[in-house]
């Protein structure tokens, strides 16, 4: 899923050793959202803005199957065994569960347009909508467990995907609030106000939640109380999401920097200038931070020093978050092509 896990830390517990080489490329014939694709069982599940879901073999880049759905998949997907949950915008249906083997729809729901990544945890599906609401849905039955709606006279959309630790579900909204909602019943636990819309997806660890706001600040808020722990000003709006390790936070900023902050204090440790806008979120692995850039480059950056270790130029802007599976690095570009990289001379 987007963010690698339900706490949306964007941390993939694996290593990769550069230099990498291009393994294959795949033409999806439509664009991708800023969210990453998903990989399971050596299959790349690739949703497109044309409303198609492509299934691609990771080991050779060949198409296994393709299915067209109701509308553009502007958010992302969630996988559970042989079922995939897809979200749609500008379409009659907003959420759909599809059985891959049977090749048919299991259920669908109309709960408002969705342009965020769904969150699947303990058979519950959480989605935030363009009406600003958060829904908990029984993934098997396709019925709404509960919904939460901010108290805005005029609904404000949410472009921030929900994250959870199993007790609380957090998401941001264009009203500037980060909402913490009870996992089981959808009641508001607390809310935290920023000065502008929250477009990024929050990341959670045991103590705190971390997220950026378009007011230019990156926030660390206590998970229990909703009180501010620290904030760091980036002097430009933050649209992107972040990656979290035990000690550091990695943030892509609007002015082309990847910045590393101390997770306890928010102090900047290092920064790397990529030259142009960066992909929606960095991907953190054991030894590197991986970021894509609008200048068509993919970068591997040393975790500790921020030094560039390896880069590669593809044929389009990299807006979507890169993902990894085993030794494979998947990069989606805005020229409708997916690239797969692997360590050089490493036979898969």
């Amino acid at each position: 899923m987007f963010g690698v896990n339900f706490t949306r830390t964007n941390f993939y517990d694996s290593e990769i050793n550069p230099p990498l080489e291009k393994f294959w490329e795949y033409d999806a014939d439509a664009g991708f959202s800023k969210y990453s694709a998903c990989i399971a069982d050596s299959i790349l599940f690739l949703p497109t803005l044309y409303g198609e879901l492509h299934l691609v073999n990771i080991y050779n880049g060949k198409k296994i199957a393709k299915q067209k759905f109701a509308g553009p998949i502007s958010g992302s997907i969630a996988l559970d065994n042989n079922e995939v949950c897809l979200t749609f915008s500008n379409s009659d249906i907003s959420l759909l569960c599809y059985e891959l083997i049977a090749g048919k729809k299991k259920w669908d729901l109309k709960i408002g347009e969705i342009e965020t990544a769904p969150l699947l945890f303990e058979k519950k599906l959480f989605v935030s909508t363009l009406d600003g609401k958060l829904f908990s849905i029984d993934k098997n039955k396709g019925i709404v467990n509960w919904s939460f709606s901010p108290e805005n006279k005029i609904p404000k959309p949410s472009y921030s995907s929900p994250a959870t630790n199993g007790q609380v579900v957090l998401y941001g909204c264009d009203d500037g609030y980060l909402y913490a909602v009870d996992f089981d019943n959808g009641k508001l636990k607390w809310k935290f106000k920023t000065n502008a819309s929250i477009k990024s997806t929050p990341s959670i660890n045991e103590q705190a939640v971390y997220f950026g706001s378009t007011d230019g600040n990156f926030y660390c808020v206590d998970l229990e109380s909703g009180e501010l722990r620290w904030k760091h000003n980036f002097e430009c709006p933050i649209y992107n999401s972040q990656a979290l390790s035990d000690s550091f936070i990695y943030v892509n900023t609007q002015d082309g920097f990847l910045k590393c902050l101390n997770i306890d204090s928010g102090k900047e440790i290092w920064k790397f200038y990529a030259g142009s806008l960066l992909s929606f979120s960095p991907l953190l692995i054991k030894n590197f931070v991986i970021v894509g850039c609008y200048n068509k480059n993919i970068y591997l950056i040393d975790l500790k020093t921020g030094n560039l270790i390896w880069s590669y130029q593809v044929n389009g802007r990299i807006k979507s978050s890169p993902i990894m599976w085993k030794k494979f690095l998947i990069v989606m570009t805005d020229n409708q092509t997916v690239y797969c990289f692997k360590p050089k001379n490493d036979n898969p």
Partner: peptide, 12 residues
């Protein structure tokens, strides 16, 4: 530089 940020887009 200003417009790259405003449009969240660049010109290749």
């Amino acid at each position: 530089k200003i417009l790259e940020k405003k449009f969240n887009h660049n010109i290749l």
